[in-house]
């Protein structure tokens, strides 16, 4: 004698599974189509890196590779070269010829930011890096470097001798009133 109860027990949890699917099928989805759709982020969220510039358009990065040394994920690769007054990228003698961050390796810990002697590398509270290929996830200077401020020439610049001799400028005195 087969009863309804028997049939249900023979089918196992299948109907219950279908019930769960049915229940969630009409629910509003929680995922979003990132990066086309974005969700509001916390103001303190730290996303991908930017390489900053000074107001005069020179790059803050001096190619010292301390970020690479500090990086626990070995995600940063820097090659340095020497500035000349005819082709100046940054103040002082040294600039980063190649600067690459492998965003797949990066764990967004911010140690690079801590290590940077010129505050050149900053994790900005904006988009998280996405891509379809592994190569595309290695961000070079073209993606990392900020555009020059409006009305200011980017790098390389021709600069007068003696103006940018030092790579690490003293920090401006801290304004105690703020």
């Amino acid at each position: 004698m087969s009863s309804v109860r028997d049939i249900i027990s023979r089918l196992g949890g299948m109907p219950m599974g279908f019930a769960t699917v049915l229940k969630t099928f009409f629910r509003k989805p929680v995922t979003v189509q990132y990066p086309e759709q974005k969700k509001p982020m916390s103001a303190r969220f730290r996303g991908r890196h930017h390489l900053k510039r000074y107001d005069d358009g020179l790059e803050k990065c001096i190619g010292c590779a301390l970020c690479a040394a500090a990086c626990p994920a070995d995600a940063i690769y820097v090659e340095a070269a020497e500035n000349t007054n005819e082709q100046r990228f940054s103040p002082g003698e040294r600039y980063s010829k190649t600067y690459e961050i492998n965003m797949l390796r990066c764990i967004f810990c911010g140690y690079c930011e801590d290590a940077c002697p010129t505050n050149a590398i900053v994790l900005e509270p904006i988009e998280f890096p996405t891509g379809y290929t592994r190569e595309g996830m290695i961000y070079a200077k073209d993606k990392l470097l900020e555009p020059a401020p409006a009305g200011v020439q980017g790098t390389p610049q021709v600069t007068p001798p003696g103006k940018y001799e030092r790579a690490i400028l003293p920090y401006p005195p801290i304004d105690a009133s703020v």
Partner: peptide
């Protein structure tokens, strides 16, 4: 001493 260790080759 300039303390420019970050760009110094001896650093």
């Amino acid at each position: 001493h300039p303390l420019d260790c970050p760009i110094c080759d001896k650093g």
